[in-house]
Design a protein around this nucleic acid. Structure first.
Lengths: 228, 228
DNA sequence: AGTTCCGTGACAACTTGATGACAAGCCACC
DNA sequence: GGTGGCTTGTCATCAAGTTGTCACGGAACT
C-alpha cells in the first residue's frame, strides 16, 4: 500500500501542483483548503504525512498543527509547514509547535518531495522500503517480524535468517552451499541436506493451506524465492 | 542525561558558534573538522544528532552521510546537512542520501536549533522532554513517573531506565549487549544474562494480571517493545 | 528400469529464556 | 553508627523451543 499524504492548502493552483507531484511519486493524495475539514480528514484517514499551509481559511495552519499534536492519535504524524512568510520568527514558531519541517514559498516541488520522503523514512521505515516484501509476505529486519497477508508468523531464528536471505536475493537460484554460507556462516561444516530440512520448516511456517509456495525447488541446483 | 550533538565543520569560527549555541540550549557538544575522524567519533560516542557540513576535509560530507546510513548501528541518527551550496540539486541529493534536514548558509542559529529539536523530538521523544506514550503505557522522563492505563506503577531505577530505553526505541529488537550499553553504560562488565532477570522484573512491574505483555522476547536476538 | 535428487517424519542433543532464591550493596532514617 | 527495606547482580534449575541427522519413500530425469 502506498503512503498517503494530506495536502492542506487553499490556493487551488498550488494544491493541484502538489497533488500532481505527489501522485507522480506514488503517494495517495487527499487535499482540502479548510482547516476544520483538515482536522476531520486526518482523524478519518490517518494519513502518513501532512503538508500544511500556514495561511488557510477558518483555522490558521499553526493552530491545526497544535491540535494535531495534542491528540495522541495524531501526534506522531509528520507535518511539513508551508508558507509565504519567510521570517525567522515564524519558522521557529512553526518548528516549536511541532512541525517537522518548514518550507518557504516559493519552493521547489522536487525538494519538497525529497523532504517528505526523508520524513517518511524516519517515521515509518516500512513505507520507505526498509521492509522486505514479496507479494503478501513481509519481513521487517529491524523489529524481527514476519507477516503473511497481514497475519503475523512465527519463525525460529534459523528460519528467519533464511527467509531474509532469500528475500534479499529474490528471483535468484541459491545453491545449498550458498545458503549455508549465507545463513550459517562461511565456516560451518554442516551437511548440505540440512538445508532441505530447514526449507521444509520454512515452508511449513510460511504457507497456510491453499497458499502459493513462494519457494521454488530447482532440481540439482538449489532453491529460489520467486518475486513476480 | 543531556542529548548530545556532534558538529562536523572545518570552519573553526562557525564551529565554535554552533558549539556555543548548542551548549546554551543544554546539549552536550563534540566537534571535529575532519570527515574520517567524524566517522570514528560517531561510532565511539553514538551522538543523538549530527550537524554535518557538506564541504569538509578528507571525506566530503555527503560521503560521511552515506557511510553512516550504511551501518546499521548509526543508520538512525538524525543528520542535518549544512552548506553554502544552495542549489536545488544539492539539497535534493543530500536529502536522498539520508540527511534528515538541509540548511543553507547563511543560516540563523536559532532556526538551526529549532530544527535540531524538531528532529530529536521525532527520533528520541524523551530527549525533547516529551512524555513517552504507547498504547496504555505512559512514561514521563522529567518527573520520572510511569503509568499503565492511568494507574501509577512503581519501578526501580534500573527498571525505569530500561523501560525508557525501550520506549525510545519502539518496535526495534535490541540485543542484550545493546541494552547493557544503553542502560548500564558502555563500560560495564555485567553478565548478559542479567538482562533477562531485569526484563522479568520489568514485566512483573508493568503487567497486571490479564494484560498484554508489551515486551516481546525474540529468541537468539534480544527483546523488543511492541507498540503497533 | 535405474539413478539421482528431494520431501518428510521422527528424534535425541542442544540452546535459550524464564524463574525463584540469595547474598551483597545502598540508602534513608532513626 | 545501626537498622530495616529496597535494589541488584549471579546462580542453579526447569521447561520449552530449536536444530542437525538419518532413514525411507516418492518424484524426476535418463
Amino acid at each position: 500500500m502506498n503512503p498517503s499524504v494530506l495536502v492542506v492548502e487553499d490556493d487551488t493552483a498550488l494544491c493541484d501542483l502538489l497533488a500532481w507531484n505527489l501522485s507522480a511519486e506514488g503517494y495517495d493524495v487527499r487535499s482540502t483548503g479548510d482547516g476544520e475539514e483538515a482536522l476531520v480528514m486526518v482523524r478519518e484517514q490517518a494519513p502518513d504525512a501532512i503538508i500544511l499551509d500556514w495561511m488557510i481559511e477558518q483555522v490558521p495552519g499553526i493552530e491545526v498543527c497544535r491540535q494535531l499534536r495534542k491528540d495522541k492519535e495524531t501526534a506522531r504524524i509528520p507535518i511539513v509547514m508551508l508558507t509565504a512568510r519567510g521570517e525567522e520568527e515564524d519558522r521557529i514558531r512553526g518548528l516549536k509547535t511541532g512541525a517537522d519541517d518548514y518550507v518557504t514559498k516559493p519552493f521547489s516541488p522536487r525538494e519538497l518531495m525529497a523532504r517528505i520522503e526523508a520524513l517518511l523514512r524516519r517515521s515509518r521505515p516500512a513505507l520507505a522500503g526498509d521492509v522486505l516484501q514479496y507479494a503478501d509476505l513481509e519481513l521487517d529486519p529491524t523489529s524481527h517480524r514476519v507477516r503473511r497477508d497481514g497475519e503475523p508468523l512465527h519463525l525460529g531464528p534459523t528460519e528467519f535468517k533464511m527467509l531474509r536471505y532469500f528475500m534479499e536475493r529474490p528471483n535468484r537460484v541459491l545453491s545449498r552451499q550458498q545458503i549455508l554460507d549465507g545463513v550459517w556462516g562461511m565456516d560451518s561444516d554442516i551437511d548440505e541436506r540440512t538445508v532441505d530440512v530447514h526449507i521444509r520448516r520454512l515452508r511449513k511456517a510460511v504457507n497456510r493451506p491453499g497458499d502459493v509456495d513462494p519457494i521454488r525447488t530447482v532440481r540439482a541446483a538449489g532453491y529460489a524465492m520467486d518475486v513476480s
